[in-house]
Nucleic acid binder design. Structure first.
Lengths: 131, 131
DNA sequence: CTGTATCCCACGCGATACTG
DNA sequence: CAGTATCGCGTGGGATACAG
């Protein structure tokens, strides 16, 4: 062990607080994968593979442009896969990948947190407006 | 016509796939709390209470304007609290609240996911560019 | 059906300057 | 020290039309 370091300050509080360190690549990744449309697409594809228009209908507020961009981005990151079915008029199916499935737990943890604490947060908002 | 049955199937696959349902208030909340600057502020305040300029220095890339906006937003949501210390030239200390601390676990889960799967995702990106 | 192509605008955010 | 005020630009994303 190369360490009997005389400057333990840095290490010290990192240990105390555990992980939580945000570097650029991680921030990039989260930005590409946690946005509004991405989560809704993930939600839908976790339930069943879907075609483009299925997704469009499942997420009424999304436009073609945004849906396309979202799917491309998720595909590029290996979160969803795009399958061109050779049927008569072109059909394309999107499905979540194994890699994509690994997002579910952390995302669900987040949603669970949100569900659990939303009341407290709305109370905080109300209190804030009052003062 | 093998259409997706709207009513009864909904329940069914929800149970299969578990939670993960994104409603507007939750999406709003996550947007206000998971953005770039917010996470960095949280990261810093989880380690120690800090003054405005401490945060500014700890997060070199942030501007006064964005830092102020971020802090106000987090304060409004009860995630951080703002304490005006009555010292000579005004001093203000920000610290994370108990409610704020409840974010750590889900956020860490996310960062852990990111750290774990970033290699696979970068591989997916490389593969995507190739085709 | 599955997208692409434009136009366009709101607004997030940086840069800069200024104040109590 | 702890912000506020103002300006300006880049871009994400909606609306719409069109193409393979």
């Amino acid at each position: 062990m190369p360490e009997t370091t005389p400057h333990p300050s840095r290490r010290a509080h990192e240990r105390q607080s555990g992980p939580l360190e945000i570097t650029a690549p991680h921030r990039d990744l989260l930005d590409q994968v946690l946005d509004n449309w991405s989560l809704q697409v993930l939600e839908t594809l976790c339930e069943r593979p879907s075609r483009f228009n299925d997704l469009s209908r499942a997420i009424p507020a999304v436009t073609n442009k945004s849906l396309t961009a979202t799917l491309r981005r998720l595909e590029r990151n290996g979160i969803v896969e795009r399958l061109v079915l050779d049927s008569r008029p072109v059909a394309v199916e999107y499905r979540i990948t194994e890699l994509g499935k690994t997002m579910r737990d952390p995302v669900d943890a987040l949603l669970l947190w949100s569900a659990t604490h939303l009341p407290a947060i709305e109370a905080a908002r109300a209190a804030y407006e009052d003062e």
